[in-house]
Each structure stands twice: as C-alpha cells, then as structure tokens.
Amino acid sequence: MTSPALSLSGSASIGGEQVFAPLVFTVPAGQWTCLLGPSGVGKSTILRLFAGLDDGITFDGQITTSNDLPFKGRVSLMAQSDLLMPWLDLPENVCLGARLRGESADLTRACHLLTQVGLSDHLDKRPTALSGGQRQRVALARTLMEDRPIVLLDEPFSALDAKSRAQMQNLAADLLTGRTVLHVTHDTAEAARLADQVLLMGANGITCPTPPQTHPPRAFDAPETQGFDGYLLRLMLEAT
C-alpha cells in the first residue's frame, strides 16, 4: 500500500452560497494532517469532496492524488457518529464493506482487529450493548478492515468523554500509521497531540503552523504540546 499525497485547489459552494473561497493546500503522503478550524468554515465539505460525497456541492477546481490514481476505492471515512448497524454483531459490522461489495468477509481478521482495539470480550455483542467510546472503537476497526491508503476522519472523537477520547486518539495514531490521514477537528488540543502537519482553516484561507518536532501522539502535559495548543488557539482567535 502506497499512501499518496492529496491536494486541493479551488472553491466550493452549496446551493449558490459560497462555503469556502479559493484555497490551495496539500496533504502530505503517509502522514497525519489535522484540518483545524472553527465550526461552519467548510472543513466537512472538504472531507466530503475527497470522499466523493459531493452531491449538492458545486466545486470549482481540482482534487488530485500524488500518484494520479482515482480516489474511488482508496478512501475510508470515519465520522463523529459511529454509523454502526444495530442489527449486526461487531464482527459483521467490521465486515460491512466486504458485504456491500459482494466480497467474502474475513471474519477472522475482523475479530483480530476488534481485539486490537481492545474489544475481545465483546465480540458477540450488538453495538447497542456498548458505550460510546467502545462503539467508536468498532468504527475504527471497521476503518482498519477497509485497509485504504487514505483515511478521512471527521471529528470522530469529539463526542467522547475525555478519557475515551484520549484512548481513542492513541489507538488511532498507532493503528493508522503509514496512511495518509486527513483529520478534521475543531479541537486545538487534539491537533497539538496528533498532527504531523496542521492546516488551519479560517475565513481568509489556510495557513500551516508548524507542529513540535516530537513524534505524535504527543503527551498531553508536555510543554511543547501545550505550547502549540495555545499557539493554535491564539491563531484561531486572531483569524476571526
């Protein structure tokens, strides 16, 4: 699996209303990029464009991958809502993609991935029997099962309590290593922990503040993490 870099240049509107003015940015290959910005600035719209969920979005510009292969079939998506199917048990939820493509489902691998995300005791359960944090772990296992080079995350941890959120961040940072990750978030502390690169999106376009040199996931209480968190917050406030 070679994870490509992604780039976007252009502007988007929905129903005649501009969502973002012309932008240019690149998401480096095989790295974790946080797309940070206040609510309503158009972060999810950008993610939807990369995911091919562009119904209703008028995009004027270009979206490319560095190896010029199409996006279709090489992207997986994890959203704020876990989107688990309540009628399927956990391994079947993890195998959903294979079922939908008419491929044979590798349940052994699904159980292995569920074990990796710490759910080995819950394999025969339905999603409704799990906590929010556990459900998002299943969604992560489902994303890993898809095994796509490009992973798009739309605030997947923002609905979790502080402890589950921190655990999920570590788990995701660990298990998604090597893929091109574009992680939409409005949480500066999260970006300060996880990002190899930050794209800060404001009403006036995108800037790229440089994260600390240390390797993510960074310690919460490390001075450089907290310093960068504060810096990002200041930039966000100044931009509006």
């Binding site: 995911a51 091919g52 969920l53 998506l77 199917m85 079922r99 939908l100 493509r101 898809e146």
Partner: peptide
C-alpha cells in the same frame, strides 16, 4: 444519510445498499 454515505464510500452497489 450517514449510513448511505458510509456504504457509498465503501463502494457498495445501489442494490446491495
């Protein structure tokens, strides 16, 4: 719609969806 979009990104055919 979230479920349908997930299925679409996963490469589902309309009938399987």
């Amino acid at each position: 719609t979230g479920w349908l979009e997930l299925a679409k990104v996963m490469g589902s055919t309309p009938l399987r969806m």
